[in-house]
């Protein structure tokens, strides 16, 4: 849930990158870190295993600057994608304002994508949230793979209604990284503005 800190004059949001293991969530945060100028970002924190798999989360704070005297800050998190880290994933969703679902275009990960999305729905329920109510976009990553599953097929599996904003990406090359972040953030801002 977005919060305001009146004494520090900050408005805070939390965005979570969700998706199956190895779909490219950590890569997104690293690329954002590498491409955002220094004054707008904080340190990146990664809690990972020796072989660089996310164990708990990655974390990157972004500072957009001030509007009406209040600073807007986004905290970006990734979850560990592997099935057995579900309790960690659930903890990271606490207070979430928006989700970027990072899907993998590899044919053998189609089912993992679907399972991860179902898992996201279940974990959101723990916080009495429904995916339809949480600002949410889809990033279809690894479009560079020679055998990448066609977009249409991935969308049919992950968003049959076609209502969710979807972005093709090659996160490792910083392609399609900025767009889903901006899109989900704007949905979060819009949602807040509409309530008042």
């Amino acid at each position: 849930m977005s919060t305001i800190n009146f004494s520090a004059r900050e408005i805070n949001f939390k965005i979570v990158y969700y998706g199956p293991g190895l779909s490219g969530k950590t890569t997104n945060l690293k690329q954002i870190y590498d491409h955002v100028p220094g004054e707008s970002k904080g340190e990146m924190v990664s809690l990972q295993t020796e072989d660089e798999r996310t164990l708990f989360f990655d974390f990157l704070p972004l500072d957009l600057g001030k509007v009406n005297g209040f600073k807007t800050r986004f905290h970006l998190y990734t979850v560990p994608g592997q099935v057995f880290y579900n309790s960690s994933r659930r903890l990271i969703l606490r207070g979430v304002d928006g989700v970027v679902f990072v899907a993998d275009s590899a044919p053998n990960r189609l089912r993992a994508n679907a399972e991860s999305l179902r898992n996201l729905r279940e974990n959101l329920e723990e916080y009495n949230l429904r995916l339809g109510e949480v600002p949410y976009v889809l990033q279809v990553n690894k479009r560079d793979l020679p055998d990448a599953v066609p977009m249409e097929m991935i969308r049919q599996v992950l968003d049959p209604s076609g209502k969710v904003g979807a972005f093709e990406a090659v996160a490792a090359e910083f392609k399609g990284v900025v767009e889903p972040l901006k899109a989900v953030s704007k949905l979060v801002l819009e949602k807040l503005a509409q309530k008042t």
């Binding site: 957009l64 600057g65 509007v67 009406n68 807007t72 704007k186 807040l192 503005a193 008042t196």
Partner: peptide
Amino acid sequence: FEPDQAWSDDTGALL
């Protein structure tokens, strides 16, 4: 603090 449309637009521009 009322996060109105103008605030949302201005913050979006920063983004």
